[in-house]
Amino acid sequence: MANIEAGGPPRLEARDVRFTVRGRHIVDGVSLSLGAGEVVTIEGASGSGKTTFLRILATQVEPDAGTILLDGTDARAITPSVFRTRVAYVLQESPMFDGTVADNVATGPRLRGKTMSAGAIAAALDRVGLAGLSGRIARELSGGERQRVALARALANEPDVLLLDEPTSALDPSSAQRVLAVVRALADSGLAVVLVTHVAEHALSLGGRHLVFEEGRIVGTADQRPETT
């Protein structure tokens, strides 16, 4: 599959990435390049390799072959923690950590020895539509709220790229729409986004570039939203 260039230089790029488990090609030669503000949605059945590909983009899994580049630099030449603060990855049903919503949101900066001000935490929560929730116990929130806390937590690192694994899979339709609206707004603010889902309509509603995964390959692609500014 040929690279599809987006507007502007690629921030995150995968070149002919392959991942094999016991002779089975989970990811079979996938290339992708992603520019600032661009949304790429990846749709596929479970077992199609889409999550593994996302994990490779996030450097959580080392590919057997191929390269991941961030702003043109090979990911292997970048300190993992530095790469991961710039390329945020939110797991499917991302677990909440102990403590309050504010504790959760401030996790990334805290790991680097930085304290996030209450104002910054409030701003991050406001960005995902959860203003005023910072004092709540994170694990007691609803599924949709937790998903948005996970987004705010990832955004606290001020990443350039956001990788989302099935952010809407466990949510009711209205919560899912709210999460998708947040993702859309983040992309409009300049973040590059890759979103993996098995729900075609969620992928299509986001617009941007749409890829279909099957047996570890991109088998279909479409530009869904020419009106993206």
Binding site: Q60, P80, S81, R84, T85, L91, S94, T107, R112
Partner: peptide, 16 residues
């Protein structure tokens, strides 16, 4: 596993 991976994704070292 999920907690550890999410922490790594937020920039944690394996120690953290």
């Amino acid at each position: 596993r999920a907690v550890i991976e999410q922490l790594l994704a937020l920039g944690a070292s394996s120690v953290q």
